[in-house]
Design a protein around this nucleic acid. Structure first.
Lengths: 155, 155
DNA sequence: CCAGAATAATTATCGCACGATCTTTTATCA
DNA sequence: TGATAAAAGATCGTGCGATAATTATTCTGG
């Protein structure tokens, strides 16, 4: 059961975590010029992707999709509000929640997202099939990482 | 040849960049309790991995391996110096460079890294073979992303 | 109905990470 | 040799991202 015997090497190039870390950096840099043009940061882009699928979500609902804390999202959403992309309104039904809605400008920016995504896709040099496969493999791993973390914190 | 026609969907779960983004978050969270025990942050852990392989590197040399700027590394290394893990000394041969060397404490901490890496590996739920394969796939993609970015900036 | 628990968001603090700019040191070359 | 260019770090400003503490609202049990 303990497969702790086949020790993974400590060489940087063998570390899966570093491969992911680097891939994330590279992806950010790939997106950057396109997002700069739209006046967006990368997490802001992700928020728009979420709102594009379903508008008027609460801060918490967005956070659950992106796996971000409200303490991260609150200032980020305020910047997006200042940029005129979204509005923030307390839900009259439950005043604890803040509903995030796209403005006309935000919706227009959402219209550009498909192009940005297409460019990034092209930059990977992967076929659509390969992207789907790699996406699935990474998501599976992420799910297992989360499962391994949540049950009980190894103090 | 132009696979720009088969547009990737804008659904969050289909975005490879989001899969990587989430995987990176999840990996960080997996490492956190172990690194907390050692008093390290995740990028500090990566610096130790680099120094463990070759001690006495310059700031720039570390940065090239981790793909980090001096503006990120300088304060990070100062914190590691304050924590007693490394020393920072101008190279007498070339006073522009700052050499980073492990202290006795730093070397002792390096001795613990293999355990941390092993725990993270176990949390992925992947076989060593699968890790090697996924690692390669991600690194290939990262390389292509870098190639697509560098030639000329698509304004 | 009301005290206390639970939930949602905000605030504060810390540590990356980047781009832009600056300083110091080294290299180059007319 | 003496001006200038290049290289290596350091500094500054902005924006995530995490945790912990706080505030405000809603829910729940007696």
């Amino acid at each position: 059961m303990t497969h702790a015997t086949d020790t993974p090497s400590l060489d940087l190039s063998d570390l899966l975590c570093f491969a992911i870390y680097s891939a994330n950096h590279a992806m950010n840099r790939t997106y950057k010029p396109h997002l700069d043009r739209l006046g967006l940061t990368y997490p802001q882009y992700l928020v728009l992707v979420v709102l594009n699928a379903q508008d008027g979500l609460s801060v918490g609902a967005i956070g659950r999709q992106l796996d971000l804390e409200s303490s991260t999202l609150t200032p980020l959403l305020k910047r997006m509000e200042a940029a005129g992309l979204v509005t923030r309104r307390r839900d009259p039904e439950d005043e604890r929640q803040v509903r995030i809605a796209l403005t006309a400008d935000g919706r227009r920016t959402c219209g550009e997202l498909a192009d940005v995504t297409r460019c990034a896709f092209a930059a990977t040099g992967l076929s659509l099939e390969e992207v789907v496969d790699l996406n699935q493999k990474i998501r599976d791993m992420t799910r297992r990482l989360r499962e391994a973390s949540t049950p009980d914190d190894p103090v």
